[in-house]
Nucleic acid binder design. Structure first.
Lengths: 228, 228
DNA sequence: TAAATATTTCCACTATCATCGAAATATAGA
DNA sequence: TCTATATTTCGATGATAGTGGAAATATTTA
């Protein structure tokens, strides 16, 4: 229906537990099939389908059809932002088991936030780059210094190409677990992509937590002076 | 799953129209009786009571009993912030009458945000004090300079006493209508209180808009170089 | 063509919940 | 003590909406 998401509608939609579970699952920024989302929200596929239709209708979620699968994803970064904000507002999850406790630890430690990195790692990287003079914190974004331009180039990221993308270049995103800002926007995405490419981090199954590899541990120490 | 904070719980409370009306009424930062809130939300007292109990239970609202009255207030500044954010997210109110249009103008011009000033006046005052070197903008708060200490003392505000309060001293709060930061926290509250005391501003009935008096117009020009 | 899988549509059931009348409780004032 | 007022509790009602069974649709694979 409407191309632009009606944000008020979005908020009321997120108030329902099953939809909230679906959206939270989508916060990893990846595509998920309807069946996966149904499983993750612990509801039947029909019910998930019902909710997903509403979410698509409201512009919260987009869908791509590939064969008999339908892949769902958050519609855009703005939706992810609202969700992230609401996550920071919501009470911390109840910990019922050791399993959950370690999952929670993992997700606080390093996770994807839609398309960029968040958690302790995301904030740590960002602060390291600010400390090194590669980035400068401004009101709502990070400015890349000339020293930073060089750094990103060395790191294999083409700043000029990233700037051309039709989205905000280097937004500051508030981290719910750390309560600090981390790098988001096109540059944040590019950095995350590069780190996956370098295999410094790998995705963990069934969660948006990411794991820092041994290669990554060394890399983060050398390039970002982060001891993991 | 369920290692993520439960966003549904908090959001669903605010997503219901009667509760939203109650909370919006409470955004003026004052205490209101249950009856007042019922009237403002256009529901029967029983219904308001039902909603208020939920809001208290969830920690959104606090209540104080005085005689046969129960005075309700927003629980804390954080709740006010969330509401302020959701208001900024919601579509602008439809203007059905000239009356509403002027009310909207008034509320954009100068209003209370829980306990401090917001709107054009709140942002204007803050920027004036930053420009004059009384405040310095930091990440999430404003620092009072030594020049500022003197200014506030002259203005009748005891900075040392304000610092002692068990709350954040001088937070920066994002303004939904102006999209700029304004002074909040204990100092923001104290400033607003002082301005009411000086009768530079007065509360308007049934709204959180405030009116700038003639005395205020002169005062804001002289002390803050604001032409109203 | 047939079978299996992914997903949706249709439909009926059910639980939830906002609402409000009636009654109960609490307090102030006369 | 009696009355008026403020508010809550109880109980009933009605509407909304999440849910999942059954069946339809679409697509892949054998």
């Amino acid at each position: 229906m409407s191309v632009n998401p009606n944000i008020a509608e979005v908020v009321s939609l997120m108030g329902e537990s099953s939809r909230a579970a679906i959206l939270t699952s989508l916060m990893d920024g990846r595509f998920h099939t309807a069946g996966e989302l149904a499983y993750m929200a612990a509801i039947k596929p029909q019910t998930a389908s019902f909710h997903l239709a509403k979410l698509v209708e409201a512009g919260c979620v987009i869908v791509e059809k590939h064969g008999r699968f339908r892949y769902y994803q958050l519609a855009n970064q703005e939706i992810a932002n609202i969700l992230e904000t609401l996550l920071s507002v919501a009470p911390p999850p109840r910990v019922n088991s050791l399993m959950q406790s370690s999952q929670l630890k993992a997700i606080r430690n390093a996770r994807t936030c839609y398309d960029h990195l968040a958690g302790s790692l995301g904030v740590g990287l960002t602060e390291s780059m600010v400390g090194a003079g590669y980035l400068e914190k401004e009101e709502k974004e990070f400015k890349v210094t000339s020293k930073g331009e060089q750094f990103f180039a060395d790191f294999g990221i083409d700043i000029a190409a990233v700037r051309k993308k039709r989205r905000s270049f280097s937004r500051a995103c508030l981290d719910w677990s750390e309560r600090h800002h981390h790098l988001a926007g096109a540059l944040g995405e590019e950095l995350a992509t590069r780190l996956f490419e370098l295999e410094w981090i790998v995705r963990l199954p069934k969660t948006r937590a990411v794991k820092i590899t041994e290669k990554g541990r060394l890399g983060f120490r050398e390039y970002f002076h982060l001891s993991i």
